Computed example of a mutant assay.
Amino acid sequence: MLTAKQHELLRFIQVRLEQTGISPSFEEMKEALDLKSKSGVHRLISALEERGFIRRLANRARALEVIKTPEEAVLTSRSAPVAANDRAPAKPSRVGAPAPANDVLDIPLHGRIAAGAPIEALEGQSSLQVPAALLGPGEHYALEVSGDSMIEAGIFDGDYALVRRTDTARDGEIVVALVDNEEATLKYLRRVNGKICLDPANGAYEAQLYEPAQVAVQGKLAGLLRRYH
């Protein structure tokens, strides 16, 4: 018998796996269940694991697999007893199993983005194949990086920035910022005295300061792809 919170968490994990193929983070689980700390999530995960409802997948970050649901557990308990010698080996249910690590997804490729001075935003569109393991939940797109203003953050000219689409971001996050509704740039976001500061990661460049109305967040950096020639 599961507690209400255990059942709620199990259902949340199952739905997220069915939607995205990737289990939610502990922070997402904490917020979904309105818990005060991640330690509460750890206790719920451990309880579900001990009861055989989920299992952790080895060598994969934040990877959980739903083995059975409470409904399946009830059906099992109501089944007629079977002699021990007649039992077939148990096969775990693969409800909402995460996508294999070698799965590849096509995401939109919106041209080049400046990692220096802003350039024209989202020019053209094609697609880029990306390993599913590099992407978390949400909608993503890719941009080819142009310039060297983010090299100290490990982002180089010619890299592909994998961006999770969102219109909000916290200070210190690397974002795709649309300036004056026509130019886009990849920078650290910072708020200073009521203004928006877009910080480079290269000492040769200066920060760019704008009024809040001039800047719209178009997404947050989720990962990078680099091709070696």
Rank of each mutant, 00 (worst) to 15 (best):
G172T: 02
A121L: 07
S23Y: 06
D148T: 09
A101M: 05
Y205I: 04
V66S: 02
E49G: 07
Y228A: 12
S37I: 00
A32T: 05
N193V: 10
A115M: 00
V104P: 01
Y188F: 15
D148E: 09
T20Q: 06
V217L: 12
T3M: 02
T185P: 04
E144K: 14
A84T: 10
A169M: 07
T185A: 06
E71F: 13
E18G: 05
H7T: 12
P89M: 06
S37W: 01
T166K: 00
I119W: 02
V145W: 04
L178N: 14
I113E: 01
S146R: 15
A73S: 14
R190D: 11
G194P: 10
S93L: 08
H140L: 08
S93A: 15
E144A: 07
Q125F: 01
Y205L: 06
E50M: 06
I45S: 07
P200I: 06
S23A: 15
E49A: 13
N181D: 15
L221K: 05
E206A: 15
F26V: 12
R87H: 05
D171W: 01
V176D: 01
Y228Q: 11
P81C: 02
L189K: 03
E71K: 13
I13D: 00
E206P: 00
C197R: 14
H42M: 12
L135Y: 02
I22S: 09
H42N: 15
G147H: 08
A73D: 14
L10Q: 04
G40W: 03
L134E: 03
A97H: 13
S149N: 08
G203P: 13
A32E: 11
E18A: 13
R51Y: 02
A63F: 01
L186I: 14
Q14R: 15
A97Q: 13
G203V: 05
D180P: 07
P81G: 03
V175I: 14
L143R: 12
R87V: 14
Y160G: 01
I196W: 02
E120H: 03
R87I: 14
A115H: 02
A63R: 02
L10T: 02
R78C: 11
D106M: 09
K36C: 01
L189M: 05
P212L: 06
Y141Q: 00
K5E: 12
Q19H: 03
I22F: 08
E182V: 03
A101T: 10
S127C: 01
L33C: 03
H7Y: 11
L134T: 05
S37E: 08
